[in-house]
């Protein structure tokens, strides 16, 4: 949409994206295994055609949307974003996607809705990690409605102008660049508008380590490691660490959290 220009062109240009091989071979997608190379090895089995998304809850137009209908009429833009994993590594990814706000406008959000909940597909026969129950599935995530409506928040369908690889969350995934990567849920099959804060998988598993908000914040450490620095993937064996930026370098979202103690709401 028009507010897409919220991200200054200069800030985008300053970022050098990782090569496609990095983006496609270093992934966390526990449905396909816990190793970083497991998704690239196993994700091929996932069936993504046809793809439909269940839209329910406090919306005007609930129902089963085909991916094409949901995307119809929306402008796919390139967004070059920093991607910061909670494990203290990062990449720069040139996503292609639409603003989540535009999708939400299409389905019609009721005034009582306060949060958006998302759910990842579960295909046990095609997903070895699901069969092993490494974490509870389906993977679920959520955003507060104002976070979901922010122009930086997108639903991505491609990377580098190509359809997204399955290990990256094909055919459609969330990207919230100022939050740790696990918030950016992959391979979405359900979007629900709700009144209460929805469950989020890592928060359920370990609430002390993973909060609902999970904004990138160099001053609030993960209990098992520091979040002050990160390593850019692809720098080789002597790759230096770099300082992690508040909100992952997207200070324009700070107003969403005015008056909130970010150490308490981590």
């Amino acid at each position: 949409g028009a507010v897409g220009s919220a991200l200054p062109a200069a800030a985008q240009a300053a970022l050098e994206p990782n090569p496609i091989e990095d983006i496609r071979t270093y992934n966390n997608f526990y449905e396909f295994g816990t190793g970083k190379d497991d998704p690239a090895r196993n994700a091929d089995a996932m069936v993504i055609e046809p793809w439909s998304i269940e839209v329910d809850g406090l919306v005007d137009n609930p129902g089963t949307w085909s991916l094409a209908d949901l995307m119809d009429g929306l402008t796919v833009e390139e967004r070059i974003y920093r991607f910061r994993c909670v494990e203290a590594w990062s990449m720069v990814v040139p996503w292609n996607g639409v603003e989540l706000a535009d999708v939400l406008a299409k389905v019609g959000v009721n005034p009582e809705a306060k949060f958006v909940a998302f759910e990842t597909v579960v295909q046990p026969e095609n997903m070895p990690g699901v069969r092993r129950q490494v974490i509870p599935f389906p993977y679920v995530e959520g955003l507060r409605l104002d976070e979901a409506m922010h122009p930086l928040t997108i639903l991505a369908t491609g990377i580098y102008g190509e359809p997204m690889a399955k290990q990256n969350g094909a055919p459609i995934r969330l990207v919230v660049p100022w939050k740790y990567g696990f918030k950016s849920i992959k391979s979405i099959v359900r979007i629900s508008l709700v009144e209460e804060e929805p469950p989020a998988t890592w928060n359920i598993i370990n609430p002390r380590e993973y909060g609902f908000y999970s904004n990138v914040n160099p001053e609030v450490d993960h209990p098992r490691w520091s979040q002050a620095t990160e390593r850019r993937i692809g720098g080789g064996l002597f790759s230096p660490r770099q300082d992690t930026l508040m909100f992952n370098g997207y200070p324009e979202v700070a107003s969403l959290y005015e008056g909130m103690d970010l150490a308490e709401f981590y």
Binding site: N18, D22, K36, W89, R231, I233, G234, G236, L237, S239
Partner: peptide, 18 residues
């Protein structure tokens, strides 16, 4: 293994792999 990491044959994040 160290040489594999050095020559870029341990994937995009050789430090973690090593």
């Amino acid at each position: 293994l160290f040489w594999l990491g050095l020559s870029g044959q341990l994937g995009p994040e050789p430090i973690n792999t090593l």
